[in-house]
């Protein structure tokens, strides 16, 4: 069993289709911690002590957000900047997150074929996520292949959201095959390498 900490972060959750459905499904998963970051800190007054305590108490950190301008929404960045401190997450004595897993669950507006050298985004999606990947490495964490939904404006919310719930359960029960996942660029609801018991 792993202790899973799931943060959802969408500043306009009421206008969202996919992310709202994901949050609803995640809330139904038992035995994990799931939080809406914009609900926790509507005024951006992040409590560093609380957040670090939460990070210490979990083994898997899942960040769920829509990709805005090739990055996370502002509050996620603020949360990272403040709570992933020097001396805690990295740097001298900064090994408190070592050995934990970091996973992203993102949605993009563009379709999958936009994220190719020939596509209009010109780069693979993983290229845009490099800052997060390197953040995990600097903190001696394992960066798990992200759970991605492209073309989110037209996609079916339910399939992706239910897949997300299964993913969270698998992470909780250590049934996600991390090595097999690592061979893939992204994970989707129909390519989850879950080990059935």
């Amino acid at each position: 069993m792993s202790r899973v900490l799931h943060y959802a972060a969408h500043p306009g959750l009421s206008t969202s289709r996919i992310n709202k459905a994901m949050v609803q499904q995640a809330r139904a998963v038992s035995g994990i911690t799931t939080l809406d970051l914009y609900e926790e800190y509507p005024r951006y007054d992040i409590d560093i002590e609380d957040e670090q305590q939460r990070l210490l108490e979990h083994d898997v950190i899942v960040l769920q957000f829509p990709l805005f301008w090739y990055s996370c929404p502002a509050l996620v960045k603020e949360w990272l900047d403040l709570s992933w401190e020097h001396g805690f997450a990295y740097g001298h004595n900064g090994d408190k997150l070592a050995g934990k897993r970091l996973m992203l669950a993102i949605t993009t507006g563009s379709p999958q074929d936009a994220y190719r050298p020939q596509g209009y985004q010109h780069h693979e999606i993983r290229q845009f996520l490099l800052p997060f990947e390197q953040t995990a490495h600097l903190c001696q964490m394992r960066f798990v292949t992200p759970y991605v939904l492209h073309g989110a404006l037209h996609a079916d919310p339910l399939a992706h959201a239910q897949g997300f719930a299964r993913l969270l359960e698998a992470l909780r029960d250590d049934r996600l095959d991390l090595d097999r996942a690592q061979e893939l660029t992204i994970l989707t609801h129909d390519t989850l390498p879950i080990v059935e018991v």
Binding site: H10, P11, G12, F68, P73, G109, S110, A114, L153
Partner: peptide, 23 residues
């Protein structure tokens, strides 16, 4: 802010072969 483009907006921009849905 943070509101996705409407169906109509998307349709018009794909007609002009632009990057339709943003990142």
């Amino acid at each position: 802010g943070w509101v996705p483009p409407t169906e109509q907006d998307q349709a018009e921009s794909s007609a002009r072969d632009e990057a339709p849905e943003g990142p």
